[in-house]
Nucleic acid binder design. Structure first.
Lengths: 293, 293
DNA sequence: AGAGGTTACGGGCAGCGTAAGGATC
DNA sequence: GATCCTTACGCTGCCCGTAACCTCT
């Protein structure tokens, strides 16, 4: 009789249409996946996949089985949540995080996860939101804290927090009387996130509306570097001030008062709904609590 | 994460309130059961059973888990029935059978089971109905073909066939003009099934209604022996004639025409409904088809 | 040639059975 | 002492990972 583990392997091969990707998803090797699926096929006495050269696809019977496998995995996850001691929930959770989050509440979050679910290992990747989004979609991440909802079937999004963007500059740099007009701001280089990111795009949008000479924009994927460059007086940065409380407190940096409106950065916890997601949802709720505190 | 096998072991321990009986039911040893349950408890981080000296009982969390375990086993059984090739269904089926069935359609039934479910091993026990009933109740049998429905929670009964009872005697024994009155019948010893069985009891009942001297009754649990004794002219047997077509055809035995009414023997296929019963129901339907043909 | 799946093979470990231990009636 | 569960221990067999092989583009 098939064990759940076999059905789980089958599920991911079916879901990802690939033995190799399923192996990655399950932290094992591709031959191990091959073998388990083969064993399952023998056990059931039928073929589950059509192995074409460049792709695998489910047979009709395989499609039927997929439904059962999914219910089985869901049932087990429900069971674990319902009866297992929280400390007994173990596993790896691959989490993608925007750097803004790293500089605000990520440490507290990790601490809370570790105390609530001691069995869970967090594997944290820091990257910009678009990359996190892509990784989520192909199941290379189990969850991500990133900008904006990810619109994708089977993806759930929980609002976490909104942080205003601001122009930040070294305190001793004089920009003249405040509120500082946009034209004055753009005389210095602007330092912000990479081209693919939301802050960059909204900034570019704001600037292009005003009919000004295109300013120099330095983009950098490392928030720390942006802060450092700003401290060095290289330019004005456009970042959420919430990530630099210390620099503001010491007076190293200051927020430029201006009438230029930049939309807030809205972060969500986004996660693909999988039937075997044991603690993804509880962890997302935890993130929500912490982000809003 | 717990595998189904562990939940199955847990289920049977909970169901039978005994590690030892669960081991028997699962064809394994008692320490193996102990170990699996202990491992499950460790994995979930909680105690599932209260081990008292003479009995085990579920803890509250255990009771919760039992519900999930049952659903899991049921789901797997459904899955197997739905998608597995019939030949892939393998396992042991412990079947109890009344001897009457042995002498009528059991051979054909076995043949049909073997061709429909080649993977299934039938373990057949022949005994009288009351013993079969008891064995069913304590899960020592997975199914039985026996007299009358077994009224018990979780027990399902399918009507199989009804066979009339008759007085049978050696052909050359003259009992006088027919229909033979009861008083005449009871002048010879009566040979039939053991005291605990329905035929014996109904016969005894019939005899006691008529106010006659108590006849001698030879009871024997072997139908073949009853037939043999009848052929030897030792007495008149009360058996379903359907079991002796050959003796009737050759003229060795004959049915005594009489007005004495004996109720029919009504056979059922009875089986405890267990969530892991893979093919019990299909097999019972098979028996039904054959019994009624 | 390279991507992706299968087959072959060796080693580690889970889980089984045997046997001994302990508790309770 | 008998019953029933647990613990100890050696062993088997499953399953995994490495590596070689096959096949199609």
């Amino acid at each position: 009789m098939p064990e759940i583990r076999s059905l789980e392997v089958f599920y991911w091969v079916a879901q990802l249409n690939s033995f190799r990707r399923a192996a990655e998803r399950l932290n094992t090797t591709q031959p191990a996946v091959s073998q388990r699926v083969a064993a399952l096929e023998t056990e059931l006495g039928l073929r589950l996949f059509d192995r074409a050269a460049r792709s695998v696809s489910l047979t009709p019977k395989g499609r039927e089985l997929l439904d059962y496998a999914e219910r089985m995995l869901r049932l087990r996850a429900d069971m674990m949540r319902a009866v297992a001691a929280p400390a007994a929930l173990s596993g790896l959770m691959r989490l993608g995080v925007s750097e803004t989050i790293v500089h605000t509440w990520l440490a507290k979050f990790i601490e809370r996860v570790n105390s609530t679910f001691p069995g869970i290992t967090l594997d944290i990747v820091v990257d910009v939101s678009p990359n996190l989004r892509d990784a989520l979609v192909v199941h290379e991440l189990d969850m991500a804290f990133l900008l904006g909802p990810v619109s994708q079937p089977n993806m759930t999004n929980y609002d976490l927090c909104r942080y205003p963007l601001a122009f930040v500059v070294r305190s001793d740099i004089d920009l003249g009387p405040e509120p500082v007009p946009l034209a004055r701001l753009t005389e210095m280089p602007i330092i912000t996130f990479p081209k693919t990111t939301r802050p960059y795009l909204t900034l570019r949008d704001t600037l292009s509306r005003a009919e000004l000479p295109a300013p120099r924009i330095f983009s950098n994927s490392s928030l720390s570097t942006i802060v450092r460059m700003t401290e060095d007086g290289i330019g004005i940065s456009v970042i959420p001030p919430v990530v630099i409380p210390r620099e503001l407190a010491t007076g190293a940096l200051r927020i430029v008062r201006t009438d230029v409106k930049l939309p807030d950065l809205a972060f969500t916890a986004s996660l693909p709904l999988t039937p075997d997601g044991l603690i993804a949802d509880p962890v997302a709720q935890l993130a929500r609590e912490i982000a809003q505190a």
